[in-house]
Design a protein around this nucleic acid. Sequence first.
DNA 1: TTTTGGTTTAACCAAGTGGTTAACAAATGT
DNA 2: ACATTTGTTAACCACTTGGTTAAACCAAAA
Lengths: 203, 203
Amino acid sequence: MSKKKEVTTETQILEAAKHVFQNKGMDGARMQEIADEAKINKAMLHYYYRSKQLLFEAVFKNAFLLLAPQLNKVLNDDSSIEDKIRNFTSNYISFINKHPYIPNFIIQELNRNPNFISNISEQAIFPNIDKFKKQVEIEVQQGILKPIAAEQLFIHLLALNVFPFIAKPLVKAFLHLEDKDFKQFMESRKKEVADFIIHSIKA
Amino acid sequence: MSKKKEVTTETQILEAAKHVFQNKGMDGARMQEIADEAKINKAMLHYYYRSKQLLFEAVFKNAFLLLAPQLNKVLNDDSSIEDKIRNFTSNYISFINKHPYIPNFIIQELNRNPNFISNISEQAIFPNIDKFKKQVEIEVQQGILKPIAAEQLFIHLLALNVFPFIAKPLVKAFLHLEDKDFKQFMESRKKEVADFIIHSIKA
DNA sequence: TTTTGGTTTAACCAAGTGGTTAACAAATGT
DNA sequence: ACATTTGTTAACCACTTGGTTAAACCAAAA
C-alpha cells in the first residue's frame, strides 16, 4: 500500500463536495463544480468515490457525525435537566454558527430520501433518548419539573433551537432583519430559549 | 378571449407541477414527469408557463398564498394572545395534515434561493408582525404576560409548530415512531405546544 | 536503470435535459 | 362557408449530465 498523495487529494475532494452538496443539495450539485472547487480532474471524483451517490453519502455521514455528539451530550450526561437545557441551547447555537449549512442539509436530504436514515440510525452514535427520558420522569416525580412527556420536551428543545436556522430566510423577512441583525437575534436566543423552556417546565 | 379547454389543461398542469415540485424540489423535478402526471404533452407546459422557472414560481406562490392566511389570522385578529396561541397551534397542525408538503417545500426552496423571498415579501398578503407586537407589549404592561419580546415569542410559536413537520424523518427516527404514531404524536402536540407556551409566558 | 504500481489527465460517450418548431386539430369570428 | 385564432402533438435540437477509458505521469522498489 503506497499512499503518495492519496490523503490530500481525497480530503480535498471531500471538502469541496461538502461545500457544494451542502449549498446545492444532491440534485443541484454538479460533479464538475466539485472537481473545479477541489482543483482536480473530474475523473478523480470517481476514482476515489466511485459515484455521485457514494460521494454524497460520504458527505452526509460526515455531517451527521458532527451533529450527533451535540445531541448525545444532552441526552447522556448526568447534569440536571435544567443545566442540560441551558448548556445545549448555548452550545448548539454556537455550533451552528460555525457550521451554518448542517441542519438544513441534513433535513433537506432526509426529506428527499427518508429511507436514508435507516443507514445511520443503527449506528452507535445515533442519539438515543432512553436515558433522557428516565431522567425527566425522575425529576417530575421529585417535583422538580411539572409533568411533561420527555419526548415532547426533547422535540420542543430541538424545535426552538434548530428551526430559526433552517427557516432563516423566512425569519429574516418576517422580522425585517439583515444578516447582522439575524446573528444578534440568534445570539440573544441562547438565553431566551433556555429561559423560555425552563419557565414552562419548572414546578 | 376564447377559453375552450384552457382552464382544465392549465390547472391540470399546475396540480401536477405542485405535486412534482413539492416532492422533488426545483432541481429534482423533471418537466417530462410533470407532463406525464398531468397526462398532457410536454410542450403544453411551455405553452402555458413558458419555462420551468416560471412554472415553479407559480407553484411556489400558490403554496405561499395558502400558508400566509394561517399566519395573518394570528397576527391580525383581536383575540387575546393566549387565545391566538391556542387557536393557531390547533389550526396549523390540522392545516399541515391536509398539506403536508408545504412547509418543507417553502423552506427548502427559500434556502436554495434566498433572494426569492423579496418577490413575495412586498405583497399585501405577506404576514406583518406589527399588530401582534403591540398586542404583546400591551399584555405585558397589563401584567397578563411576563416580559417577553414579541419577535422571540412569534418565532417560538412557529418553531414549535413547524419544526416537527419539517424534520419528520428525524423525529420519527429519534422517537422510534411509525407514520401512524407520528400522526398521533402531532395530534397530541395541538394541546401540548399551546400549554407549553402559555405556561411559560403567563404572569 | 528499469520496472512497477497507484495516480492523474484529456478526450470521449450515451442518456437525459429544458426548450423549440412546424404541422395539425378544434373553436371562434365573420 | 371560410378565415383566423387558439390548443395540441410528435419530432427534433443544442447542451449538460454522470460516468468511462486509455494513455501519460511519477515516485519508489528491484
